[in-house]
Write a protein that binds this DNA or RNA. Structure first.
Length: 451
RNA sequence: GGCCCUAUCGUCUAUCGGCUAGGACACGGCCUUCUCAAGGCUGGAAGCGGGGUUCGACUCCCCGUAGGGUCACCA
């Protein structure tokens, strides 16, 4: 393809605002975005709201907000309902030329009308070369004279799509493969109105673990982009993950910024079969991005996550600050802060721990005398720490003593006294979060327990 | 059911006729270690079946089989 042609590439993403933006929709939009940007083409967002009954403003807003959040920008945005006059013009033209006709329907059921506009099917074979699926042929006879408008004033999906794609100069139609069966109908209409045929690329669907199409009805909220936004996933990670679902660069690389994706993307490397959405892999990838976040950005995200959890929001500001690095490497996405907290993972940060005194003894030695001596020594060491001691400062003060006396016999009782749990974050971090007086108080309680 | 699409580890995938079938996620083991998490090392795990074509098929063709999509006066 030469440079002149590339400049004329026009892609579009055309969602209907009848529900929250679907992750599959995001991926379709992403592939359109990558292809358009890579080739210096134009990208159009077209809200397909010809069904006024089902279309909702809130969903239109959700679509726009979602893309803004993802950082995917469109060059133009249109609402199909505002283009009604144009659709009607083409409809009238079709009827005038005898290529469509007003059909009187009998046996009017509920919701059906006496008159609809039907396309006069030439009953021929339609073939097209799909960029990802290859050559596809259909015999359109079985489609019959399909309906293209409810009335001369109410054009339907197929007509509106074809007219808009034509009028907007769309060169490439990149969409989900659930549209393959719509393509022959649309090609028939194109030929009837004398529109050129765009290049089609039908991308495989994103599947649920049961390998069926991901649908809100069947699979719940987790099919919507906003779910992942609310769970605290990073937009760059979501884009990266979705791009790799059904596409690959041909080598082992997996982590790509959007800019790199624009550079690397190629239609030829899009997979032909559907791909299961694997939340585990998304989690892994999101963590990769969390880890690479600049300190200040991470801090902003973490503070927001901490404040959204009632139990943790009660902590003072400096305690929250101390908690950031500790929490950061135990989560895959920010919503996990709340999930872990609700599981009771961090109760000891806000409540005094309760435990049996036997738990204070390090299981490899079970030495009561040593444990007691060590707790007394620890109290002395911690009392001397500055009030705002960081985990590093606390470690520097305690570690030498622990190494001298045997780490297990010092650190295990310390951690148990502070957390009351078999599994917890390291004791120095706990000291830094709960503070010196509270730490000493908990150690005194431990001492009292074993006496 | 008709039509259409698809078919490599559990999942995402590499392979464009030469493969001891590679990587990633997840999982197991080991190391590190006061516990957990993280990290490092490591292990198990795949070509749907049958025919062709070919010196040689995971790769090409055909037939089965399986899965998916779609069959609105929705988009």
């Amino acid at each position: 393809m030469n440079k002149g042609e590339k400049e004329h590439i026009v892609c579009r993403f055309a969602p209907s605002p009848t529900g929250p933006l679907h992750v599959g929709g995001v991926r379709s939009a992403l592939f359109n975005y990558l292809y358009a940007r890579q080739n210096g083409g134009k990208l159009i967002l077209r809200i397909e709201d010809t069904d006024i009954e089902r279309s909702k403003k809130e969903y239109e807003d959700d679509i726009k907000e979602s893309f803004a959040w993802l950082g995917l920008e469109f060059d133009e945005t249109h609402k199909q309902s505002e283009r009604l006059a144009i659709h009607k013009k083409y409809l009238a033209g079709l009827i005038d030329k005898g290529l469509a006709y007003v059909s009187r329907e009998e046996g009017t059921e509920a919701g059906k009308r006496k008159e609809v506009i039907r396309f006069k099917n030439p009953n021929r074979t339609v073939a097209f070369d799909d960029l990802v699926k290859g050559h596809i042929e259909f015999d359109t006879t079985e489609l019959g004279d399909f309906v293209i408008a409810k009335s001369t004033d109410e054009p339907l999906f197929h007509l509106a799509v074809v007219v808009d794609d034509f009028e907007m100069g769309i060169t490439h139609v990149i969409r989900g493969e659930d549209h393959i069966s719509n393509t022959p109908r649309q090609i028939l209409i194109q030929d009837a109105i004398g529109a050129p045929r765009p290049i089609y690329a039908h991308i495989p669907l994103i599947l649920a673990p049961d390998r069926s199409k991901l649908s809100k009805r069947k699979h719940g909220e987790s099919v919507s982009l906003k779910y992942y936004r609310a769970q605290g996933y990073l937009p760059e990670a979501l884009i990266n993950y979705l791009a790799l679902l059904g596409w690959n660069p041909g080598d082992d690389r997996e982590l790509f910024s959007t800019e790199e994706l624009i550079k690397e993307f190629s239609m030829e490397r899009i997979q032909k079969g559907g791909a299961v959405f694997d939340i585990e892999k998304l989690n892994w990838m999101n963590k990769e991005y969390v880890t690479k976040l600049p300190k200040e950005v991470l801090s902003t995200y973490m503070l927001r996550a901490i404040d959204s959890v009632e139990q943790l929001s009660r902590l003072t500001d400096w305690k929250k600050e101390r908690l950031i690095p500790v929490l950061a490497d135990r989560i895959h996405y920010f919503g996990q802060v709340g999930e872990l907290t609700h599981l009771g993972e961090f109760d000891y940060l806000t409540e005094t721990p309760v435990y049996a005194k036997e738990a204070l003894l390090w299981k490899k030695e079970l030495d009561l005398t040593k444990t007691k001596t060590n707790i007394i020594a620890l109290i002395a060491l911690i009392e001397k720490l500055p009030k705002d001691a960081t985990a590093e400062v606390a470690k520097a003060a305690i570690f030498p003593y622990a190494e001298e006396q045997g780490k297990g016999n010092v650190l295990w009782p310390l951690r148990m006294a502070l957390s009351g749990k078999e599994k917890s974050i390291d004791p120095f971090s706990i000291v830094s979060v709960i503070g010196i007086p509270e730490s000493v108080s908990r150690l005194n309680y431990a001492l009292h327990l074993i006496e």
